[in-house]
């Protein structure tokens, strides 16, 4: 009986102390770590079209279309099938792709999650941190340079 009462006392203690752990979500968004991996943001200005991100992507989320002389470049990313592993960001030599802190995005159909270059550029930052700065200290460790040739195509 003592143990039973001890259990009841424990829950009662939680009930009367009035503390809550949950947050009122849309009004108070939770804190997100600077390392958080959310929706991709793409910078066309930085991109050198080396296609390493396309190669490293484990499940073909990134699709780059262009001809041999780099004409008609397209950068498509199906955010609906992305697994947020952040390998594309790690492998990018020029920081052209970054995973933002943005995790709130909705669409009515899966097709709408196929983002093209323009949509990727317009992905918002909504927290006031500079991701590059936040991540800089460990940057060189992301994808070890190591031996062996780098296949830019």
């Amino acid at each position: 009986m003592i143990g039973l009462l001890k259990g009841m006392a424990t829950t009662l203690k939680h009930a009367v102390d009035g503390e809550t752990f949950t947050v009122s979500y849309p009004e108070e968004p939770p804190e997100v770590s600077p390392r958080f991996r959310g929706v991709h943001k793409f910078s066309q200005e930085r991109c050198i079209w080396c296609r390493q991100c396309e190669n490293i992507c484990p499940n073909d989320t990134i699709q780059i279309v262009m001809d041999d002389s780099h004409n008609g470049e397209q950068y498509n990313l199906h955010i609906g099938q992305c697994i947020y592993c952040r390998l594309c960001e790690e492998v990018c030599p020029v920081d052209a792709i970054l995973l933002t802190q943005n995790f709130e995005f909705v669409a009515e159909t899966k097709d709408e999650f196929a983002y093209n270059m323009e949509e990727l550029r317009n992905v918002p930052w909504y927290n006031s941190i500079d991701p590059l700065e936040a991540r800089e200290p460990d940057r060189e460790a992301w994808v070890g340079e190591g031996e062996g040739e780098v296949d830019y195509q």
């Binding site: 003592i2 143990g3 039973l4 001890k6 259990g7 424990t10």
Partner: peptide, 14 residues
């Protein structure tokens, strides 16, 4: 300790 109070020391749980 709280889990022990709620679980392992509870006679009905035992």
């Amino acid at each position: 300790e709280e889990y022990h109070n709620l679980l392992t020391s509870n006679e009905l749980f035992q």
